[in-house]
Design a protein around this nucleic acid. Sequence first.
DNA 1: CGAGCTAATTGACAATTGTCAACTAGGTGT
DNA 2: ACACCTAGTTGACAATTGTCAATTAGCTCG
Lengths: 345, 345
Amino acid sequence: MIKTLQRQVTPPRIKRRALSIPAEFDSDPVVWAAWLYYEEGMTQEEVADQLGVSRASVVNFLQEARDRNIVTIAVSSRHLQTIGLARELADAYGLTSCLVVPDDGGRLLVHERIGTAGARLLIERLKPDDVLGVSWGRTVQALSAALPEMKLPGVTVAQITGCSIGTTEFSPELCTSNIANRLGARCVNLHAPGIVSTAQIKRLFMQEPALVETFKIIQSSNKVLFGVGSVDDAGTAMRSGYMTPEKIAPYLARGAVGVVSGRFIDREGKPILGALDNQMIGLTLDEIAKVPERICIAGGSDKIDAVYAALNNNYATILVTDLATARALVPRATRSHRTGVSSRP
Amino acid sequence: MIKTLQRQVTPPRIKRRALSIPAEFDSDPVVWAAWLYYEEGMTQEEVADQLGVSRASVVNFLQEARDRNIVTIAVSSRHLQTIGLARELADAYGLTSCLVVPDDGGRLLVHERIGTAGARLLIERLKPDDVLGVSWGRTVQALSAALPEMKLPGVTVAQITGCSIGTTEFSPELCTSNIANRLGARCVNLHAPGIVSTAQIKRLFMQEPALVETFKIIQSSNKVLFGVGSVDDAGTAMRSGYMTPEKIAPYLARGAVGVVSGRFIDREGKPILGALDNQMIGLTLDEIAKVPERICIAGGSDKIDAVYAALNNNYATILVTDLATARALVPRATRSHRTGVSSRP
DNA sequence: CGAGCTAATTGACAATTGTCAACTAGGTGT
DNA sequence: ACACCTAGTTGACAATTGTCAATTAGCTCG
């Protein structure tokens, strides 16, 4: 294994008499075997000759060397924790895939790191003719910024929530168009406010032929990309002018812990339907849950409850998160997650 | 190989739905393969199935994982010390630590084996903010080649002798920069010839502001690494263009048996000061002896006298040598070594 | 768009390693 | 001294791993 490396360096093999084990000194044959095998890349047979024992004994010595931690074989913690957790998370919540981005000592913000990894994942998974529904938020914006320029004319990127009033950098319309631009894909914006003033007006909007057309496309998404907001992270939803404290209050009172694509969920992940839902224009949680591939990009210690809720109710088939969040999520998983059983498909 | 160990730990194998080509950070199947093979104890075939590639590719991935230090396989140098001979040597010469590398039947050259062990020891002992002074020679070069890639930005590696004229692979400047590069440490080269033509010129050099600065750093070393040359090993010092037979002759006449960092010592280890010393640019033996931790890497039957001399005068606090040399050195030790008493601090 | 190049991947075979039942050495109790 | 036990060792076989030439995939350039 390490041998190829050594072999390149190794001079022509010189066969020499086996030197007796220096028995006069207490020399531990286990240490010698470990050194010759793991550091010098000898084969077990060569080690056996050198030590003057059978190869089978060398096998035993090496086994003991590992048991006694004379040799250490380890996947470097950076990679190790990352991959190991990703695997555990995927297994624990029945995800088809999971990315855990490693800590970087605070160089980048959590959502930037997740965005970068998500961008990577996205371009690897996108296939021609895909329709990608896109939600919005800081993390989604970060993802769009991390995307490389490409030309995927066959792909459609569709905005799955209405527009916000404010003009922050991570508004729904910008997230969508940025991603579409970077990918060189077709961009389908949802030209309507995210929240209108009454249910009546929403109904009017939804009957508009232009919007009906748009919704047909949005609803044909075979992939969706969304972040998860925490409700106590007052900033995100409101800074964008999308919501106001008064509108949120009733949801909070009913136990909202998170926001997915503008919709509130409780700590189990169940949708909390309130007055506002009848004024929102965009995919519902039920519609999102029907999309075959659902990529959730979210992390940060303030979002753990919200991400758990989202995973609990199977909104995501793929999760991109950070190390700390992943660590917190694994122990929360119950057996039902593993089997993929849930109140929602 | 690691399998038995892992198997004991691994829960009953549950056949799991294969995660589609695992979306990995950096889309790097190498990390994934390393994890599954080394941490989870899967066979290469199982890993291949999981990743959806051929087993041969898994072999390549694992090779790359080792090359990139995603997995680390190391015999902790601590255990080489537990070998009886190493303890005896340390005790006999008042060393704080000692490593004895086992014989390998001539597969690798002595200096290569010592270099490997020295590399291991070095990375285990380096602490943040260390300043490591580095001498030069075949063994030091071998050590640098055996170092794994790391990133220790807090460490400084400084060249303690001036440069050689020749361009051999083990010149002072290369030894230093190779070590610094491998460690990811700051590299401080001594930009001056190792030997200048007159004492007058040396004085001029030493007044140069740039060199004054460099010397401040070099002299602040809290660790030094050096080999020991034998004088009859005519090759080393001369092949590098560092010295010529005519220059060496007077030192030989006065009983020189070894060379430490370009300086001659007699069979007791005392410095032999001659004309050349006033033309050499670099740390003196007295300066080296003041460094708190002094790592000597040297061995081979032709160097026994020289290594004895170096140990006799306490130039080293740590020794890395080979079995044959260690065997020869133990009986030569006198009581005075044990107590650490010596003509030099 | 295809020729020409390089890097990555693979299947088939050789070499190395793991397993295990049989054996041996070295103690222990009677 | 003898049977008995235990821990360590071994040879032979099965399983896993390394190698390498042939092939394929991905590129660049005309």
